[in-house]
Simulated assay, not measured.
Amino acid sequence: MRLSFAALALSAPLLFAALPSYAAPSDMAVAAPAAEGMSDAKLQAMSAAIKAGQFQQITSVLIARHGKQVFEAYYDGDVQTRRNTRSTTKTVTAMLAGAAIAQGALPGVDAPISRYVKDRTPVANPDPRKEKVTVEDLLTMSSIAECDDDNQYSRGNEERMYLIEDWVGFYRDLPVRGFTAWAPRPEASPYGRAFSYCTAGVTTLGAVIQGAVGQPLPAFADKVLFGPLGIDKPEWQFSPLGLAQGGGGLGLTSRDLLKLGQLYANGGQWNGKQVLPASFVKAATSPHANARQDTDYGYLIWLQTFAGHKAWAMSGTGGNKVIIVPDLDLVAVITTTNFNVRQPHAISEKLLTEHILTAVEK
């Protein structure tokens, strides 16, 4: 997500590592790293490396193991700082789609989106195939629209969307993409879907959810997701027409992000309550499209492997990440301001593999 971003003021690092439970204002249980099979010495070495600038501008790292927070450190801002999560917001939008399905507002992921955005009938490039685009097409970044944020010349590139008022209309007006030898047709692609990263499609999915549930996306999110998790005052970005941006830029604290990751790690449960259906979480974290070599894509979440461990990753520009590693029962949050740094995702992934995962001892 590249929409307007205000730089955070630098401050001295604030470190909370292995806090005793009585000292933690968070509503997650807190434990010493060793109690949950992690090395405090290695985590402190990681923190020293971050403060030395070895990973550029890391702003916070939080880690949970076995559902308990074992590490929390801030290198810019503090506990209350809301991070511009960039495209990690997309996974939140997927969660809201799951909640809408659970309520029956959406009949399922195979629901055509056209019935929920009737006021935005395609004006340009009409094509009957557009009426068959489904919620799942948007969840998996595999709709037929010519939309590719990784291609600056794409008609649907995210930056072009911000130039006009109606972001949903922008998506609905896109031409149907062609398929070539280097962009194979869906039937020739793994899982039968041709992946193309498209923020405009996720923005439109937010409007679809809003139309299905009959209330603004932020209000629905507060009711079904943020409220149950104790996430307070999320800061949404909005289109010129007032649509909450489901495609990026949602302001959440680092602890909020940890809760969202833990929700998926718990199969949709939080404090004994089933916030999202376990069946949806399973579907969301299963491969539906192949994004690139060695990387699949679920429902607006990346499916990767780090140091031999399969992981689910909420991911945003600058290397902002919420990473769930199921076989280790571990959730890690890495926030950054590495927006103008080369290969920022590789930087965050190096921090994960060389420090966080190696700190797991049992």
Rank of each mutant, 00 (worst) to 15 (best):
303 L>V: 14
59 T>F: 12
4 S>H: 01
145 A>Q: 15
314 M>A: 13
177 R>S: 02
199 T>F: 01
204 T>M: 00
73 A>P: 00
248 G>R: 00
213 V>W: 00
332 A>P: 09
185 R>P: 11
137 D>T: 01
161 M>E: 07
318 G>Q: 04
93 T>D: 12
32 A>V: 02
11 S>K: 11
77 G>Y: 03
118 K>L: 15
227 G>V: 06
26 S>F: 15
159 E>D: 15
97 A>W: 00
154 S>E: 07
166 D>E: 11
266 N>G: 03
84 N>I: 00
348 S>H: 04
25 P>M: 06
112 P>T: 09
186 P>A: 06
172 R>L: 15
207 A>T: 07
310 K>H: 15
236 W>C: 08
234 P>M: 02
161 M>K: 01
275 V>F: 06
50 I>H: 00
218 P>L: 13
258 L>R: 01
351 L>K: 00
201 G>A: 09
239 S>V: 07
130 K>N: 04
350 K>G: 02
357 L>Q: 13
284 A>C: 02
187 E>V: 06
67 G>N: 05
35 A>Y: 03
349 E>T: 01
250 L>D: 02
241 L>A: 09
39 S>R: 02
284 A>T: 00
169 G>E: 11
122 P>C: 06
310 K>A: 09
52 A>F: 13
337 T>W: 09
49 A>R: 01
48 A>C: 10
316 G>H: 03
82 R>D: 12
133 V>M: 03
232 D>I: 06
5 F>L: 07
61 V>S: 00
203 T>C: 09
90 K>A: 07
186 P>H: 03
97 A>I: 02
178 G>N: 12
336 T>K: 09
346 A>V: 12
66 H>E: 15
170 F>W: 05
359 A>W: 05
47 S>R: 06
142 S>A: 14
34 A>Y: 05
117 V>P: 00
123 V>F: 06
2 R>S: 08
132 K>H: 12
55 F>C: 05
10 L>A: 12
98 G>H: 04
141 M>F: 13
327 D>Y: 08
159 E>P: 05
243 L>K: 06
153 Y>H: 13
262 Q>A: 01
345 H>L: 13
183 A>N: 13
340 N>K: 05
355 H>I: 01
211 G>D: 02
86 R>T: 11
359 A>T: 05
48 A>R: 07
108 G>E: 03
108 G>V: 00
245 Q>W: 08
